[in-house]
């Protein structure tokens, strides 16, 4: 049962990575990476149960937090870049 779940998670992770590689555009990639993070959390949790080591769940909690913060940080970064390039374009005119 748990093996089936892990297999499904792995297949989905590959599909998500495909989307991240294909893009197009940065938002598709950020979305793919964000979903990939959620799947990693699930994978860590399921793997913990498979190996009988529920301590893995702590890593899952941490990963869930880092994933959220990373998404927000990346979005802020891209927007910051846009602001910078916009003002540069504005000054260039």
């Amino acid at each position: 049962m748990i093996f089936a779940v892990m297999a499904a998670l792995l297949v989905t992770m590959v599909l998500t990575l495909l989307r991240a590689f294909m893009g197009p555009g940065r938002y598709n990639r950020i979305l793919a990476v964000n979903t990939f993070g959620t799947k990693t959390v699930l994978f860590v949790a399921v793997a913990g149960f498979l190996f009988g080591r529920p301590e893995f769940l702590d890593i899952g909690i941490l990963y869930a937090l880092v994933n959220f913060v990373a998404t927000v940080a990346v979005l802020r970064l891209t927007h910051y870049q846009e602001l910078v390039s916009d003002t540069e374009r504005g000054e260039g005119k």
């Binding site: 989905t12 599909l15 989307r19 699930l42």
Partner: peptide, 9 residues
């Protein structure tokens, strides 16, 4: 989960 992955593509 699988449905979500397929939908993403």
């Amino acid at each position: 989960v699988l449905t979500g992955g397929v939908g993403m593509l």
